[in-house]
């Protein structure tokens, strides 16, 4: 009884949210409803006892596919309003296609016959106390370990390919020299200032961050800077760390690296 209630709750929400996916005006809402639909489908799988499928559905469809959809919808400038304009005109055709499909499905299922000796086909029987996930893991990492690892190699090759075909070394790429980044002290980039009460920085003539503090940990050639950054520890014109209000010399700081 309880199972049935749970099933109907999930199923109802699933169907409703699926309907909202096609009818929502805002495409972002559509994708969000799609995610809701996926979650409810996962719930249905759980009701059916297929917890592995439920997890996969959430991880793959919600975690990857739906988020990808969301990215596409938000990043591409698709004029959805324009796409909907023809709805009135095309609705009869859509309905006709739907009807034909429905009729065909009805035909197919009305002649569906289950073989008489279906019971004699050996079924995989779950051992008592074993979950689907454990059973799948058992075969995946024993019988099929060779194929499993080979699939890993296929994915690795795909990854290498994606990098090889798309990665370009750009002069404006922003990469860090990790050693230098670790050696960096607060004094290199940070100036402590005592600003009098009631006055802003602007009132004291303004302060500009030492120019090379942007580049101090960068790899030569990144940030579009061709010259070697000034070695750490001797930042030309860096503000002293004692908190003295050194301000108003923003223009002097420009020369630090650009030469």
């Amino acid at each position: 009884m309880m199972t049935q209630i749970v099933f109907y709750v999930f199923a109802t929400v699933l169907v409703l949210s699926a309907g909202m996916v096609v009818s929502a005006r805002n495409p972002v809402h559509s994708v969000l409803f799609l995610i809701l639909a996926f979650f409810n489908a996962a719930g249905l799988f759980l009701v059916a006892g297929a917890e592995f499928l439920a997890m996969i559905l959430v991880i793959v469809y919600v975690g990857a596919v739906a988020v990808l959809f969301l990215f596409v919808v938000m990043m591409l400038d698709v004029r959805f309003a324009q796409m909907r304009e023809g709805l009135q005109r095309y609705a009869p055709f859509g309905a006709a296609v739907g009807l034909v499909l429905l009729a065909e499905l009805a035909l197919a299922f009305s002649h569906w016959q289950v073989a008489a000796d279906i019971a004699s086909v050996p079924h995989v029987v779950a051992a008592p106390g074993r979950t689907n996930t454990a059973a799948l893991g058992d075969v995946l990492y024993t019988h099929y370990v060779f194929l499993f690892e080979a699939c890993g190699l296929v994915l690795l090759v795909a990854m290498i390919g994606a990098i090889v075909l798309t990665l370009r070394e750009r002069p404006m790429g922003r990469r860090q020299n990790i050693d230098r980044q670790h050696e960096r002290t607060a004094a290199d980039t940070l100036a402590m200032m005592t600003v009098p009460l009631g006055q802003g920085v602007a009132a004291n003539g303004g302060f500009r961050r030492p120019e090379q503090s942007y580049y101090i940990a960068s790899v030569p050639g990144s940030y579009g800077v061709t010259a070697e950054p000034v070695p750490q520890g001797k930042p030309a014109g860096a503000a002293p760390a004692d908190g003295a209000p050194e301000s108003g010399h923003g223009a002097d700081n420009h020369g630090g690296l650009a030469q």
Binding site: Y144, L147, A150, V154, V157, I160, G161, L165
Partner: peptide, 30 residues
């Protein structure tokens, strides 16, 4: 892997591993 396949799955995965790398190699001078 294709040469050693004893199962239709090995056949397919070996074939895909080999083909996928070649697709990339073909477009290598991008």
């Amino acid at each position: 892997m294709m040469a050693s396949s004893g199962n239709l799955m090995t056949l397919f995965i070996g074939l895909e591993l080999s083909s996928l790398a070649i697709y990339i190699l073909c477009a290598f001078a991008r």
